[in-house]
């Protein structure tokens, strides 16, 4: 397939993020938020049709639902019930890969969804709470999507509250190895990273077109491992763009990254 010339940064991120799921086999792909959900849906429609997915409510689907309001005549491709209590049976079996957007991600890949600043008893900013992050992070692979790559998200020091386990030797539970933690891809508006550097250091996997290594490092509060020449994130193909458009008929993806910039910023 030839790569498209005209695509948005959101679409580039969707395609890059969909790669996180391509070798997963038969697992539940959970993308929370528009770009992660479209990424998982795109993977299910293209590179990994064995993926499982819910309707974000209580049913498993054999085909991903398009986002947003659907025609009255629309019939979802349900294949089983999958209420919240049953989700945990799946989570704890490990047959799941979630992609989520925490507020902080530290050098260990630990993340924070709970609270910022102040004390634990009286935080300066209360956020969502730990949600399912503790269980997700120790039970199955996880990826992160960050729509604005900056040093507030990728901050110096440790997360204000550690919602998910990462590669931090000081917090490693007895009888566990750091290799039990499985953080896959970190997709941002600047680049794709993983934790494949020395001693699970964060590592640059690819730069989005027009972005430099220096920009990534300046916007990350800790050193990013760079291994030789860094690849450029592959542009979407027209086929991928068409599938994304069909999955997102109300163009919610255009509102996910500030000012909806083009994918190629060179």
């Amino acid at each position: 397939m030839t790569q498209a010339n005209d695509y948005s940064l959101a679409e580039l991120c969707i395609v890059a993020a969909s790669r996180a799921f391509e070798n997963d086999g038969e697992v539940l792909a959970t993308g929370i938020g528009v770009i992660p959900r479209l990424a998982a849906s795109l993977a299910m429609k293209t590179t990994n049709p064995d993926l499982m997915m819910t309707d974000s409510e209580a049913w498993m689907l054999s085909e991903p639902n398009p986002l947003g309001k659907r025609a009255d005549a629309f019939v979802p491709a349900t294949e089983s019930w999958m209420g919240f209590s049953r989700i945990f049976d799946n989570v704890w079996s490990g047959k799941r890969h979630a992609m989520l957007g925490p507020t902080q991600i530290d050098r260990y890949g630990q993340s924070n969804t709970s609270a910022l600043g102040g004390t634990y008893e009286q935080p300066k900013v209360m956020m969502l709470g730990a949600r399912g992050f503790p269980g997700n992070s120790i039970s199955h692979p996880n990826s992160f999507f960050v729509p604005s790559h900056n040093t507030r998200v990728f901050m110096d020091g440790e997360c204000d509250f550690v919602s998910s386990i990462g590669y931090n030797p000081a917090r490693l539970p007895k009888g566990h190895s750091l290799d039990d933690v499985d953080i896959r891809l970190v997709i941002t508006d600047l680049c794709v990273m993983d934790f494949g550097g020395p001693q699970h250091q964060i590592r640059l996997v690819s730069l989005h077109p027009g972005i430099t290594v220096e920009q990534v490092q300046e916007n990350t509060g800790y050193p990013v491992h760079v291994d030789g020449d860094v690849a450029t994130t592959a542009a979407p193909t027209q086929e991928q763009l068409d599938i994304i458009a069909a999955l997102d008929p109300h163009n919610q993806r255009a509102a996910q990254i500030k000012d909806n910039p083009p994918g190629d910023r060179s």
Partner: peptide, 13 residues
Amino acid sequence: PTEVGLGTDIVTK
């Protein structure tokens, strides 16, 4: 018993 919470601030706070 569960492994959920290990390595996080759930167990420290």
